[in-house]
Design a binder for these strands. Sequence first.
DNA 1: CGACACTGTCATGGA
DNA 2: GGTCCATGACAGTGT
Length: 611
Amino acid sequence: MMDVELPKTPQSQQDMELIDILWRQDIDLGAGREVFDYSHRQKEHELRRQRELEEEERQQRLREQEKALLAQLQLDEETGEFVPRPPPTTQPEPVATQTAVFTEVDGQTLSFDECMQLLEETFPLVETIETINPSLDSSVAPQPDSSPTMTGHPQTPLLAAVTPTQKSLPDLEQAWMELLSIPELQQCLNVNVNEMLETTTYPASSVPPQVQESSYPFYTSKVADGVPSPAEAIPPPPYQNTFEGSFTTVAPPENLRQMTLEASDMNATFDVDNFCDIFYPDVPNANVKQPNILGAEGNESGSLAEMQDEPPNPVEIPEFGMSEDFEDKKPEAMTEFPDSDSGLSLDTSPNDSSPEKIGDGSFGYSDSDMEEMDSNPGSIQSDYSEMFPLSFSADGFQAISSVSAQPSPSQDSNVRQAKTELVEGTGHRKPPFTKDKQKKRSESRLSRDEQRAKTLQIPFAVDLIINLPVDDFNEMMSKHQLTEAQLALVRDIRRRGKNKVAAQNCRKRKMESIAGLENELDSLREEKERLQREKAENSSSLRRAKQQLSSLYQEVFGMLRDEAGRPYSPSEYSLQQSSDGNVFLVPRVKKTSAKSKVAPESRKWGSRGMR
DNA sequence: CGACACTGTCATGGA
DNA sequence: GGTCCATGACAGTGT
């Protein structure tokens, strides 16, 4: 297409018409006429090259600045923050102005605004570049940076520096405000502040006492303690935990060990204290009983605390769950778990109906909060419930542990699946609110079933209910006196759980089938192309053979002479070959009558001539 | 706000 | 007849 028009060559009218036709065809493909303008394309090419050069130059400068900035800092391995190096160890700086700036403020405690000012002063070049070539602004992509702590975070200082600095401060603040407006974060802020003072996971040494104020002041005051660095743009560990939604990524091995120990210690009432001990073994129980701690404790315990605020006191359970239509008698329970069977309207909100129940909690849960709360600990718990099947109930422990001593293949595969899911959830970092969220959402149903099971005091783990073989399941059920409601719920949980897995497998198979069909389609297309090529080759070789035959025919025919020594006329005679390989000279005229008559003569003659 | 993808659930049929 | 599994259809939710 591009070859049609050559520059500076005189174009005939025909050429121009051809170009016009081609151009009209290309309009359908979105190509404008300027595409065919050679000088225009050349200019564009030059412009693009110039832009690339400028871009490279600028990124090089930014890298140098970043290196200089990082050279001033060192990574605190405990907190993951960048802290200023002590002055004697400061590396020689490639950019003198930055050294001046840093030594000026080094060793001081900076407020958030000071940090931002510092950032502003540290990257003076950016704005000049911006003014030089503002058109590049939108084309600048956040550079994949070298610092691992900065990857994946939406607001790195580098990025903030690339944008106009007047905008970066409000933008960053706005970003943090948005982050902090997320209920999970608020929840974590309220809780983890307390936890950070007491737990060993998050050393509280750097947290000033006033951090227990509101959320945003907490963050700013925390920042004020630090030093401007790329790490400042990354939430402190508690927030990261919230984003990652994974305890296993941060839980030290001691915690895991304690989880296993605690699991066997749980009593039949499955009260909040024990449950919180599983996930937060270091939090004193006295604190756990405080409502705000409960609500914000961790994910699962938060929802559990909410449940514990409601009637399901173990003592009251019989009168609560024994009757078949208990849902009518207990409207509060209905708001929490409206259905034992369909589960259709479950998503609507146990939580938004009663956010204030949590106590002084200044935070309400949305549905997504609920999912955040129950998804990951749910998966963890389900994993653990696989390992310790009766973590919920002491009285059912014997039965189920005996049953689960020989896991069925399906159960085994389920365990594997659960583990792979866990690995997926914790193995690598993902953007917090994309696929991960959907994954959490996908796991939330199980958690809701678990919650319902807990509410009705079902003495079995949900995973067991779902994965046990029928016989074992029936045996397990027969060993417990369950109410009608409990039985119905258990059956529904089993049915839903199995069907959920079946649906997942079905979809997986369907996708694999589609992929297989696409592959097959590709290979068939390739084979079709191959056959077409083969056909073309064959027809061309056939053509060649015909040409050779024709020339050979003419050559032979031209050599033939009659008895008078004259050549035969091709319009009167032709050569024909019989099935036995003999070649005859056959007269064309009077074919029907002459053939039999002439043939003997010609064959004799022809045989002599052709042999 | 509509389109789309993903997921859970239900209904149904076959083994 | 009960159970399990596969699958289409539908609804809810998030992007």
